[in-house]
Amino acid sequence: MNTKPRLAVFKFASCDGCQLSLLSLEDELLAIADKVDVVHFLEATSRVEEGPYDVSLIEGSITTAADQERIRHIRANSKFLVTIGACATSGGIQALKNWSNKDEFLSIVYAKPEYIETLATSTAISDHVRVDFELRGCPINKYQLLEVLQAFLAGRMPRTPNHCVCLDCKRKGNVCVMVVSATACLGPVTQSGCGALCPSYDRPCYGCFGPSTQPNLISLSNQFQRDGMSPERVIQSLRSFNGYATEFRAESDRIESQIDASEVTVDE
């Protein structure tokens, strides 16, 4: 009798990069395949089984009415549902359309928009169904994915750090790009997970892993502006791969409302 846990991988609006991370665990993949039964993973195998599933890994955001239904069906058939990556946990880069006019977006890309069915928004999986664990990153860190799978097999919650990128920079001995060159770095408000990659390559963090716990965004965006960044550009730096994550969204909306208010004053 086969008693191995049943693992499924599902894709919504996304680039495939996060599910690819599972195949990128080159040294561990065959051992994982030995411990779990991969019963639904369209990118990797033609074996396609119906639920129930013990663990479902969800990549991508919800952008169509059909996908709203599909995620509910997957949730109902999954014991443990884990979102992987920025699209699934915060709506992804495609959530930039949440601030725009959908019809205008459609007409920019497609000559015949009437053929395309899409919602006005790109939203996180947790906006639609209960999520048991969210793994951050654009893309995810494959070793954190391994930790999620090992934790599940051991019957415990995954342990992934939620401190900010700054601490990793200090540990690595990186020179602070903000202090030294007044470059607008999102490291102080972005969750660890990448290993402080960008500052290690002489560039500021651009927020791939989304907001860290209790980020002081107002203080940081004020500092960006004191360093000479325009409010419009501060908004854009927050509105990227995790732009629709609650904390980043609140701050970019706050700055935008300030701009709007000052424009009204000028008009008067």
Partner: peptide, 11 residues
């Protein structure tokens, strides 16, 4: 595959 409108969001 749902569209993601890259050409529009780059503007």
């Amino acid at each position: 595959e749902p569209p993601r409108f890259f050409e529009a969001l780059l503007r």
